[in-house]
């Protein structure tokens, strides 16, 4: 160890207490953006002031699906696409928990798309963080519901001709109360957004654009992870409150980032408790009050 580095030997990375250190090294590739999002998430947890014993994280399957396994929280690595309904059961059965779903674009929006739209419609009290790397990384770079038109993937070898989802528009249309998009270049804004989402009751959604150098970038000759972060830096425009209809993404196109939606709607549990109190009166056994507060 050089003398320069030795000076920092006793300084612990502030994120380390949030990680299951015995599980490091992680499986993510050099240049992958998922680790950056985890760093932001750990910092957002600190800043949120939440009791971490009461925070659960639920992932589906895929590269981002591995996030739950590295966080020192109650963590659940479920089945492909089904993190949201597992999280729904966890939250409803114990309303005192803060439940975060952390998964990838293929998991949440292809195989799990139906669960996403219904949880947003219900305003289930969940924070959903989607790391969007435009591809299926774990299985080797197949086309995803987020792959931009024209990008090459192993199952779109001549370039993608399927229209991708505009995720903020989808979340907005389904009723999410908080919708934001950032990239892994925007670490400060992303951390702040994660904190806001964690502290806001209801279905909160953050899309994070992240590079997959091994499969998406290499196959499309876009350089390495740093090159893609430079692209995020150069082509992103912050536009809070942007009309989500207008924020769709093209192949290496301009990117609109920001907080697009921040509104109030009663959560599923609040609606249930209020409704049953009204129609059943004292016969109703309240269940976790307003999101778990007595």
């Amino acid at each position: 160890m050089s003398e320069d580095l030795a000076r920092f030997e006793d300084v612990e990375n502030p994120v380390m207490p949030y990680l299951r250190q015995e599980r490091i090294p992680h499986i993510w590739c050099p240049g992958c953006g998922i680790g950056t999002t985890v760093n932001c998430f750990a910092r957002a947890l600190t800043e949120s002031g939440l009791d971490l014993d009461k925070v659960s994280i639920v992932s589906g399957i895929g590269c981002t699906g591995r996030v739950a396994g590295y966080m020192r929280l109650d963590s659940f690595h479920t089945t492909h696409g089904r993190a949201i309904p597992f999280a729904t059961g966890l939250k409803l059965a114990n309303p005192r928990l803060k439940v975060v779903v952390y998964s990838g674009d293929g998991d949440l929006f292809a195989i799990g798309g139906n669960h996403f739209v219904h949880a947003a419609r219900r305003n289930m009290d969940l924070t959903v963080i989607c790391v969007n790397n435009s591809t299926y990384g774990m299985t080797g770079g197949q086309v995803a519901p987020t792959t931009p038109l024209g990008a090459t993937q192993t199952t779109m070898p001549y370039g993608n001709f399927e229209n991708p989802f505009n995720l903020p528009f989808l979340a907005d249309a389904c009723g999410a109360v908080y919708v934001a998009r950032w990239t892994v270049f925007h670490v400060k804004q992303l951390t702040r957004a994660m904190k806001e989402a964690l502290l806001k009751p209801g279905f909160t959604f953050i899309e994070v654009l992240a590079p997959c150098p091994t499969l998406y970038l290499r196959r499309n000759r876009l350089g390495d992870g740093v090159d893609q972060v430079k692209y995020y830096k150069e082509k992103s425009t912050i536009k809070h409150g942007a009309d989500t209809k207008e924020v769709g993404l093209g192949f290496q196109s301009d990117i609109v980032v920001g907080k697009f939606v921040d509104r109030e709607r009663p959560t599923w549990l609040d609606s249930m408790n209020q409704h049953f109190s009204k129609v059943l009166g004292t016969r109703f056994q309240p269940w976790g009050g307003s999101n778990g507060e007595d």
Binding site: R82, I84, P85, T88, K91, L92
Partner: peptide
């Protein structure tokens, strides 16, 4: 699919 995994979230709660 959702019902059969929501109950498992409920069990772990």
């Amino acid at each position: 699919l959702a019902s059969s995994i929501a109950i498992q979230g409920g069990a772990w709660a």
